[in-house]
Simulated scan of single mutants.
Amino acid sequence: MDFGEQRMTVTSVRPDWGSLHGDVRSYVERRLAARVVEAIPCGGGFTPGVASRLRLNDGRRLFLKGMDAEHPFASQYEDEVAVTSVLPEGVGPRVVWSADPDESGGWWWLCLEDIPGTVPVLAPGSADTDMALAAVEQAGKLLTPSPLDGAKPIADLVGRWLTGWSTLSSQTLEDLDPWAARHLEALAAIEQDWQQGAAGSTLLHWDLRPDNMLRREEGTVVIIDWSYQNQGAAWIDPAVLVPYLILDGHTAAEAEAAVAHLPQPENPQTLTAFAAGLGGYWEKSSRRPAPPGVPFLRAHQVRAAEAARTWLRHRTGWE
């Protein structure tokens, strides 16, 4: 694959290498011990930091992520530096170097191996789906117990996020999906019950979706963008992937069957509650204004909320 050919679907607006202040570029090139001769911004993901595939004058190709520490999204880059740096070989991309704001003059930086590949398509019967699920299975095994000291319980991080139905139930919404409107109070009543089965020692990605994966040319999938310092039950990451299997063409039953060999909660109602939590989060978040530099996030959340409703209708049997 030619260096200029790999381009993902654009979902965020990122700064070009050439638009960065000269002092910022000089620091990076000192750390690279080479000059950047080509930088291709990668438009995938939903944060507006630097994310570019670099070609250097010594022939190397690397991937660079970075963000000014003063930016509102900077904490995600701080977390990604911490998490990616402790991942076992084969779980995530190899770290070449990283830097915190104190040493770099105010930026978080993460320089990684450049991985030629494509975003996997998680369609029914697709080899990509099998490879992606194999990567999730391997990650769950290698990240239990968590290799990250100080990883926080998953419920502490996202418990306050997955309360969307409770928030929406206090509002008058004429455009709410009719099925969700009929069952709004019931969804609000169960959306936090997943937390009872969330404790565990597995380092979790939390944001598993196809554009946070790359299918290598040799036929394996690597999970990228490890942006959260959290741990919990091993069933959570496979469950996060279910709506994206639905978005890529699986029925809800097919999506659940695809991950059935991966860890599952002991109580099936825990999974139903988690689906409710995800759906409510996406439904509520999709109604907010787009954050600066991320104009496509809300449209993504609209689609994700629809997939979560499909999953919920399957799991609850509610008409």
Rank of each mutant, 00 (worst) to 15 (best):
W161Y: 15
E5I: 08
E266T: 15
Q192E: 13
R288H: 14
R298P: 14
L142N: 06
P93K: 05
Q301C: 05
R216A: 12
G293P: 08
P120K: 00
R209W: 09
L162P: 12
D58T: 05
S170R: 14
G106P: 07
T9G: 14
W235R: 04
T129K: 08
F73I: 07
P88W: 11
I246D: 10
T118Y: 12
P147K: 03
A151N: 03
E306S: 10
P120N: 01
L262H: 07
A39T: 00
Q192Y: 14
A139L: 10
A273P: 12
Q76M: 14
Q196V: 09
H261E: 06
P243W: 11
G277T: 08
L157A: 15
Y77E: 10
I223F: 01
Y281P: 10
V37G: 06
P238V: 01
V10F: 01
S169V: 00
V302Y: 01
S52Q: 09
P210G: 02
K65N: 02
N212P: 03
S126G: 02
V240F: 12
A34Q: 00
P145G: 08
H314D: 13
S19R: 06
E78P: 10
T118V: 11
I40R: 07
A273M: 12
T11G: 07
E185W: 06
D68Q: 05
K152R: 13
K141Y: 03
E306D: 13
P15Y: 00
I115E: 10
P289N: 11
R160M: 15
V121A: 10
I40F: 05
L262C: 07
